[in-house]
Design a protein around this nucleic acid. Structure first.
Lengths: 267, 267
DNA sequence: CGGAGCGTTGAATTTCGTCAATGCTTGTGG
DNA sequence: CCACAAGCATTGACGAAATTCAACGCTCCG
């Protein structure tokens, strides 16, 4: 049994380290095994491009470990980080379902492992694993809800608040390459993204971000040592962010209402 | 034949005034007739609420004529207009597909006609009109792409630019209650939304919006008479917006890549 | 050692938010 | 029909915040 688990943990969906919180966590075992045979695990070094904006879709990608940045280039030439792909999330599903080009460029921000399901295999999911196909759709719909909420967040919250929220999300991500516990009870974050990109996610200039960070530091909410940001008290930061203690974690947490009857009947 | 057309044009999907540019434009005739029997047309006066945030989904709504505002309330109490529903678009699809609460409140901004498909009827679509069900999903995926593009637009463009783009979208909407051609070649817009809401869509205060408008007026890009905004030259405004001449119209235009093989196989 | 890239800091400018006051439009009641 | 109140829209003034331009420190790497 122990041996079997070991084998599974290195190559099986059923024992994937992020299975419990992945987009596929609700799949019946039979369908999970179908995907298990389709998927091809791959290791990406930091900086590797998973797919590029404007290129045709070639499959879907499930992040087993690591962190992926989603970058988008505007017609006017400027580009910005528009989202993060956490472990457990599936990327490329929208382009796959629409059979369209990728709208974003996905780049591994740290060393990352992804499981690839080739397009021709994923197409067979609809007959061999209908629940999995529905899960893909449900995932996109959930992402849409999050995007819309983010839109409001942009309009309603200050840059300070949004930075605090972003740091808290990283702190709660549990990424071993990013988050390290601190003796004092807080955490130390090794930011996997450059300042300029961090600024872009908030929609501000790098200098402005630097000043916001400096102010938070003066107030004791964070300490700064090179590329490492230490958060002495997550609670204090959450309070500053204007949020209640439990932090909503997009993509990972509550998967309760996903794939309701409307979809279930569609299988 | 003429008689038949007349009848259809008042109550049939096949001859719906917005069919050619609606979310359902690609449906085969047989399925369009199925929906035709399900739908119930309804007239909404300006200000009427189509559905409310937090309420359970009761069906999907196709906008036959008019304009609908999508409003969202943040936890901190502030609320803002987060989107517009144009004629031809289908609203409530995401809540229906996820069988979840509505995340937004939909309010008719001008006199509007919608066709309602009750939830119990829409559920039957998956067997009686699978293409239609797929179209619903495709619509949501397309909306997601737009939302993501809007996210980048927020970060990369100035408020001036975004206001220009918003005005141009209204100008190109072709809504008879909103857009009137001008002898000089431009158009006159009777804004269906209050200044405060317009400001909220851009993420600024009403006073700031007023000043942006004042500046555009001083530069001759628009004229202002009460609630009517006259745009003497759409081309000049498009140039100011930093866009090439053809304006991308979210939701209405090109429906080319929607519902690709990934979805087609899912029926 | 020196250059390149990244990050921070400073100063000047522009923009935005806030508070307050003033028009303008609308609808109501006399 | 007019006066009046209420709500929306604009303008002004001031402080706060963001952008821009510039300079400097730091680290990495050839």
């Amino acid at each position: 049994m122990t041996h079997l688990e070991t084998v599974k943990s290195c190559c099986g969906c059923l024992a994937c380290p992020v299975r419990s919180r992945s987009d596929w966590s609700t799949l019946p075992q039979r369908e999970a095994m179908v995907i298990d045979r389709m998927k091809r695990p791959r290791r990406l070094p930091a900086g590797a491009v998973l797919f590029a904006q404007g290129r045709p879709n070639t499959g879907v990608y499930c992040i087993r470990r690591g962190l992926v940045g989603l970058r988008m280039t505007h017609e006017n030439g400027t580009d910005a980080l528009v989202g993060l792909g956490w472990a457990g999330q599936t990327l490329g599903a929208r382009a796959f379902l629409r059979n369209s080009e990728h709208r974003t460029t996905a780049i591994a921000l740290i060393e990352t492992e992804v499981c690839t399901i080739e397009r021709r295999d994923a197409l067979r999911l609809t007959v061999e694993a209908p629940t999995a196909h529905m899960a893909l759709v449900g995932r996109c719909l959930a992402a849409m809800d999050e995007a819309q909420a983010g839109l409001l967040e942009n309009a309603a919250l200050s840059n300070r608040h949004r930075l605090s929220i972003l740091l808290l999300r990283l702190a709660y991500s549990g990424l071993p390459q990013v988050v390290a516990p601190l003796a004092s009870g807080g955490v130390a974050l090794s930011l996997p993204i450059a300042r300029g990109d961090l600024a872009g996610m908030l929609g501000v200039q790098p200098e402005t971000l630097s000043r916001i960070i400096a102010r938070l530091r003066q107030e004791g909410l964070l300490r700064l040592r090179g590329r490492v940001i230490e958060l002495p008290s997550l609670r204090a930061l959450a309070g500053e962010a204007g949020l209640p203690d439990p932090l909503p974690m997009p993509g990972l947490a509550r998967r309760t209402a996903a794939a309701g009857p409307g979809l279930a009947a569609g299988s």
